[in-house]
Design a protein around this nucleic acid. Structure first.
Lengths: 347, 347
DNA sequence: GCGGTTAACTTAAGCGGTTAACAAGCCTTT
DNA sequence: AAAGGCTTGTTAACCGCTTAAGTTAACCGC
């Protein structure tokens, strides 16, 4: 008969390889039930001293709750899903970074996903995040008018940033006043004497007409200037190609209004190739105020929507929605601020 | 006694509010066990016809497996955690977008997290992702020499991109040949006649000395030029402030070598403020080749590491590691390619 | 006609937590 | 002194899926 010394099985205190400590182990260590430990660690239902004892044991054993198990049981995580419509766009990159930081400051993890400009994928990823039990979804949509949003907004709080979502059941919206922005840019250009303006809008596969296009047409008609809408991929290289064609044309417009600073950079590149001077030979206006825009020569005249405020407000709305707080203004309309710099001049 | 009509409980076929269909429901609908359905949906162990029957029922009921439950039971997800050391850096933004796209093309979701330049947070987030059961972790680290990486690499495949991780147990590395990059930039500047160069390195809170600093000193000594290392935050505004001080100094260096294009943009901004011409008055070299760099005036001379190849290789290594494939080269050293443009000139 | 495979399922035990419901002990009330 | 109310725990049923092990029944060679 084997003596005590040869007893099989694990010696106490011997760490198991590659295995985290579980709730049950903490329970055994303290002589409590798993339920008691679970409550204790969340500071509910138990006496001060038990809580202390459990905390100590947990710390000693290096216990950390498994987020997956917790998510399955409770249906909650401490994560926010952040869905970027198109991370190719430099401004969205900035936005995502800012939002991530903002949420992290509030001790919530941001899971960032990129739909790559594809509306179908966008909804697929939104569902994926919903299934991941993120506590809320913060989205800067490619296709805000998709049918699918309603179903998603039913399952969890959704905050939209940038464009207004088709469903009214969002937990909040921080959106651009696109009409005001477009009006002010076109009025500004008109004031500088421009009468023919090319408008570069981001192409997005199978996205329906965006209201922005309508705003442009309306403003143009009202002011009495000719605005030609030209769709263009966000990517700088492709934007350059499109811009090149534009500038090489027989009678190019005197000004190019770009729906994102990314696109404006393409125009700068094309202008440089064609030995045209931005400002003197062609006026350019952007729409985002990316940090780099002020570094260009000439600095890009653009519309500043206040990125950091947008990120902060979006994060605030999201957190409020998760915590079930009521907020006064669920729909925040960002006013455009023209950043007049050197790229648009009197003609 | 109540009649059949008043029977309580749910009527069959009545959709439950806000509740997804579960595996059990599909099992009941087909008259099989949940196990059989589980197998069938993954095409294992079952007859062709049963599989077909299950698929049809699942489709009809709109069944989709719950990823959380699946992760808990199987320990796997189809997601890759992507950890950015500092999303403030424009180049990392580009990298993350490219990696995300690359992985998505291979039908895997990329969960992007941002450590915001904080080494502690970086490890914390890495653990968080591990706990989320991501199948692999792809990281562009702030502090590659941290102790903690070993523990993480033990639990799941880790692929490093940018800087080499302290642990040897990575599943792969796609790293810059920093020494070669630094050598070639300094040699290039030396060749142009520069003898005093300021080197702008990203500050990172509580990160130990990076080997890059050593490379700079060694190369400088070898060439016989004076290189002054100046730490600087990645953010453009702050970089501008630092650069301003640099350019205003009594005897500024003739060239500024920036460890990232973001930093170089700061120098451009400061130069513009001081009415200095980049190129003529001060030479600037970057280190990333961000798309915008070629749009600046003058276009930024920089080091191109081949972002898209990096992203593709990193994704490839990651996927290979997940699928347990052996790869020939686990450590890919990216060679620097100087993109000579106009910002660095003969002095 | 009998042990031995094999195909096709079923059973049931988890994965690691959460949480409703219940129980025991002690303190008030009336 | 019995009834009610807290406080502090415990029990056990999930959450929705995976998977090792077990069960049938058909098939096979000899």
């Amino acid at each position: 008969m084997p003596t005590m010394w040869t007893c099989p099985g694990r010696l106490p205190g011997m760490a198991r390889p590659n295995k985290r400590t579980t709730l049950r182990e903490v329970a055994e260590a303290t002589g409590l039930s798993t339920a008691a430990v679970s409550y204790a660690l969340r500071g509910k239902h138990v006496s001060k001293e038990t809580e202390e004892r459990v905390r100590k044991a947990a710390a000693e054993l290096g216990y950390e709750a498994d987020p997956i198990a917790r998510a399955l049981a409770s249906g909650r995580t401490s994560m926010v899903g952040v869905l970027a419509g198109d991370l190719q766009d430099l401004w969205q990159q900035q936005l995502m970074a800012a939002i991530g930081r903002e949420l992290l400051a509030g001790d919530r993890y941001a899971l960032i996903l990129d739909a790559g400009g594809d509306p179908d994928r966008e909804l697929k990823l939104a569902k994926q995040l919903r299934d991941q039990r993120v506590d809320a979804l913060l989205v800067s949509p490619v296709n805000p008018s998709a049918e699918g949003w309603a179903a998603i907004a039913d399952a969890l709080p959704v905050v939209a940033v940038g464009d207004s979502l088709s469903t009214a059941r969002t937990a909040g919206q921080v959106i651009f006043d696109n009409r005001a922005g477009i009006d002010s840019v076109l009025e500004y250009l008109y004031g500088l004497g421009h009468r023919r303006v090319t408008v570069l809008t981001p192409t997005r596969p199978s996205t329906p007409d965006r209201p922005a296009d309508v705003y442009v047409r309306e403003a143009a008609e009202r002011l009495g200037l000719r605005a030609e809408l030209v769709p263009c991929p966000q990517e700088l290289g492709e934007a350059t190609v499109v811009a090149r064609r534009l500038l090489d044309g027989p009678r190019p417009a005197t000004a190019v209004f770009c729906f994102s600073d990314s696109l404006a950079y393409g125009v700068y590149a094309a202008a440089a190739e064609a030995s045209l001077s931005v400002g003197r030979d062609v006026s350019v206006v952007g729409f985002d105020d990316h940090p780099v825009s002020r570094v260009l020569t000439p600095p890009l005249t653009t519309v500043d929507w206040g990125l950091s405020e947008i990120a902060a407000e979006a994060a605030r709305l999201t957190v409020a929605a998760i915590e079930g707080k009521r907020v006064r203004k669920k729909r925040i309309l960002c006013a455009p601020r023209m950043s007049e710099r050197g790229s648009a001049v009197r003609v």
